[in-house]
Design a binder for these strands. Structure first.
Length: 491
RNA sequence: GGGCCGUUAGCUCAGCGGUAGAGCAGUUGGCUUUUAACCAAUUGGUCGAUGGUUCGAAUCCAUCACGGCCCA
């Protein structure tokens, strides 16, 4: 596209700004990079916001601030930097000099800090520099950018204009660093395991398929880091974790994005009960540190991370939320199938009792688990990587964690019996061959690792996105992912 | 994949068969310690796209695109 066409395509607002930029070019480089701020807006507000005008004036505090012009109010402008906002004031002479500044421009300003009659801090401009000309007009100052599609497609605009969006991603960053700090303080090593895998393992899900040209090899985007992290436990990393993306080739919804962030961690010489205790303490700690409290307000409901989390088994929870159902019925494959059919759950012939129970659980219990709740004793049939319960081989030493009716975490005592693991893989392969494209592959090397011996261990994965949704009162997972996936626009 | 809803100025939205509108932003001027600053004037549009119905379509119908919510 030629310059002429480019200019022709601009609307009038952009064309006007482009003319100002052209004028700046004639005077020199319009994109200088020699201004250095020495303080952030929020630092000024925090240090001096409470001072009276009389207290502040004699101090004659000098400040260099830089940021984006967000509003104009007579001789004042509002500057926004990463930390917050500060006003700047231009006398008549300076006003003439900065007449070409537009809302959205990035500027640097130096002067003395003052307080206005109404009690707001401002920097009285002595020297000023336009650092970057903004060519596109920002959305409206009062309503901000509300169009969901544009907020997701142009997140940078959303971040400039909507403070709630900035807050959401600040909290996200704080949650991730809080979890990282919690684990590191307890002796966990952070690891990075392959995102490109030849055998996608560690979960039952449809993977993304890709191709490595040089090796001429079909590869998969990982669906979980689990099997690699447990190889590290075999290798002697008794406490290890990874915070990174998983990819699952599934639909998108308010709760699902094809790539999402998990923290997975493994701890040798511990079991699933230790993991539940750790989870409870970690989430309580992170909530307190990030939110300043342990009650979480979410979409009109309140969830209390301060109280001990409820714990019940899969069967107990089904009985609790289905008063007409008895434990005997749930334990019988024929009767359990009848119950599921009565609930309108489609069943495959291949489903065993454990799978049927979980279908009933997901349909009738999951969405009702509002307050923080651990559900334990998941059937072995649906837990191909978890250790069987010593007292009841039908179930595993596994739990899932729910808040607000959503699964947030999944953990278990690890299966470290190589022969049992091989058998479970064989079952998965049989299911895959029967048409279940979510079933697992047989991972020979993982079996080999277990044959070297993995210490008794437990591990867990926590869905970061869903946790951040809770902590930021976000109704959609897309609100907590900076650049959620969208269909490309044509042309 | 199915159902419902949406797409109009840079942004937020009215208009729902008869000349395309408002607020903010922009431009010009005034004011000059403002707080969604204010006052006056003013610019700005393939009404998502393509077909159709009609004397006449932003408006009704169909198809498509993109998005949202709910369901599978």
């Amino acid at each position: 596209m030629t310059d002429d066409q480019q200019h022709h395509d601009d609307n009038k607002l952009i064309a006007e700004r482009r003319q100002k930029l052209d004028a700046l070019r004639e005077q020199g480089n319009p994109f200088p990079n020699d201004f250095r701020h020495d303080v952030l807006a929020a630092e000024l507000q925090q240090a001096h916001g409470e001072k009276t005008k009389e207290e502040l004036e004699p101090l004659a505090i000098r400040a260099k601030v830089a940021g984006r012009v967000m509003a104009r109010r007579g001789p004042f402008m509002v500057l926004q930097d990463q930390s917050g906002r500060i006003q700047i004031y231009a006398d008549k002479a300076i006003q003439q000099e900065i007449k070409h500044w537009d809302i959205g421009d990035i500027v640097g300003v130096e002067g003395v800090l003052h307080k206005s009659g109404k009690g707001d801090l401002y920097v009285m401009i002595e020297r000023q520099q336009l650092l970057t000309k903004s060519l596109r007009p920002l959305p409206e100052k009062w309503h901000g950018l509300t169009d969901t599609e544009q907020r997701y497609r142009q997140r940078y605009v959303d971040l400039i204009i909507n403070e709630e969006t900035r807050d959401t991603f600040r909290i996200r960053a704080a949650v991730i660093s809080g979890i990282r700090q919690y684990l590191v303080e307890r002796g966990f090593y952070e690891a990075e395991t392959p995102m490109l895998q030849v055998i996608p393992g560690g979960a039952t899900a449809r993977p993304f398929v890709t191709h490595h040209n040089a090796l001429d090899l079909q590869m998969y985007m990982r669906i979980a880091p689990e099997l690699y992290l447990k190889r590290l436990v075999v290798g002697g990393f008794d406490r290890v974790f990874e915070i990174n993306r998983n990819f699952r080739n599934e639909g998108v919804s308010t709760r699902h994005n094809p790539e999402f962030t998990m923290v997975e961690f493994y701890q040798a010489y511990s079991d699933y009960r230790d993991m539940m205790n750790l989870t409870e303490d970690m989430l309580r700690t992170v909530a307190a540190n990030v939110l300043g409290k342990t009650e979480v307000e979410y979409q009109g409901e309140s969830f209390d991370f301060g109280k001990p989390f409820a714990r019940m088994t899969v069967v107990e929870s089904i009985l609790h939320f289905n008063p007409g159902v008895t434990e005997q019925q749930l334990g019988d494959i024929v009767e359990a199938r009848e119950i599921a059919k009565g609930l309108g759950i489609p069943l495959k012939d291949s489903y065993g009792l454990g799978k049927v129970q979980i279908e009933i659980f997901e349909k009738t219990v999951e969405h009702q688990l509002k307050q923080p709740t651990f559900i334990t004793e998941y059937p072995t049939e649906v837990s191909p990587l978890a250790r069987r319960s010593d007292s009841n081989p039908f179930v595993t030493d596994r739990f899932e964690f729910f808040v607000g009716g959503r699964e947030i975490a999944n953990g278990f005592s690890e299966l470290n019996d190589a022969e049992d693991q091989a058998e479970r893989f064989h079952k998965q392969v049989a299911e895959k061959e029967a048409g279940d494209d979510e079933a697992m592959f047989f991972d020979e090397d993982y079996i080999a690792a277990l044959e070297y011996g993995m210490p008794p261990a437990a591990g867990e994965g926590i869905g970061i996105d869903r946790l951040v949704m809770l902590f930021t009162d976000s109704p959609s997972i897309r609100d907590v992912i900076l650049f959620p996936h969208m269909r490309p626009l044509h042309k």
